[in-house]
Computed example of a mutant assay.
Amino acid sequence: MAPHGHGSKHSCEGDHDHHESPEMGLEYSLYSKIDKDNLECLNESVDGSGKTVFKPWEERLNFEIFVDSDADEELLFNIPFTGNVKLKGIIVIGGDADSHPSKMRLFKNRPRMTFDDVSCAPDQEFDLHADVNGTLEYNTKVVTFNTVYHLTIHFPTNFGAETSRVYYIGLRGDFTEAHRHGVTICTYEARANTSDHKNPLDENVSHHIQ
């Protein structure tokens, strides 16, 4: 069943309504650049359900797929990318009324965070508004999120329910492939070339053995 709104929606700094356009599917395609095998969601009630909310724009209103929190209202997503991302905007479609997350905290390039780690200051945070149609975008600080290889999203609270529900998290931005050749070159250059480091004693020993 589709969720219902939480009442009147208002905007504040960092968020705005966007207009539906054919380009939205392309703009919100960063889900395909996530390393899904290593993505993790902490406090999910069903193992693996957190991965399902990162899906194509056209499937954002599929309310049969979602993640519920387990022990309390908190959810924590550790999201590794397959390259570098310039993150520009986030859309969150949450659950019906009180189960919709009410706050979102973002951490850049801090892999495998746990709930013990989120007491530190986030790189950016937002007060969320109930958005059941994916019409409200939260704009990130592009300078801060210019080179992101790992994004952590923490939903600490909701609007009053014991648990939280999320149907869709959309990520908008630019993607750059990771460059691997630099590591290969360094590894190659670090290998010692034995022909450049001949030991005269070794040659003498070899001569006597013959």
Score class of each variant (00 low, 15 high):
Ala2Asn: 13
Gly5Tyr: 05
Gly5His: 13
Gly5Leu: 14
His6Val: 01
Gly7Lys: 08
His10Gly: 00
Glu13Asp: 08
Gly14Asp: 09
Asp17Leu: 15
Asp17Val: 09
Asp17Phe: 15
His18Ile: 14
Glu20His: 14
Glu20Trp: 11
Ser21Ala: 10
Pro22Trp: 10
Met24Asn: 11
Met24Glu: 07
Gly25Cys: 01
Gly25Met: 03
Leu30Arg: 04
Tyr31Trp: 15
Tyr31His: 14
Lys33Gln: 12
Ile34Val: 07
Asp37Glu: 15
Asp37Met: 11
Asn38Glu: 11
Leu39Val: 03
Glu40Asn: 11
Cys41Gln: 02
Leu42Asp: 01
Asn43Tyr: 00
Glu44Arg: 06
Thr52Pro: 00
Phe54Val: 08
Pro56Ala: 05
Pro56Leu: 02
Glu58Leu: 14
Glu59Leu: 15
Arg60Gly: 06
Arg60Gln: 12
Glu64Arg: 12
Glu64Ser: 15
Glu64Phe: 06
Ile65Tyr: 00
Ile65Leu: 06
Phe66Gly: 00
Asp70His: 12
Ala71Gln: 14
Asp72Glu: 05
Pro80Gln: 00
Gly83Phe: 10
Val85Arg: 15
Lys86Phe: 01
Lys86Met: 03
Lys88Trp: 01
Lys88Gly: 12
Ile91Glu: 05
Val92Asp: 07
Val92Gln: 07
Gly94Val: 10
Gly94Leu: 11
Ser99Ala: 14
Pro101Phe: 05
Ser102Ile: 12
Lys103Val: 02
Met104Ala: 10
Met104Thr: 03
Arg105Ile: 05
Leu106Phe: 13
Leu106Gln: 13
Lys108Trp: 01
Asn109Glu: 05
Arg110Met: 13
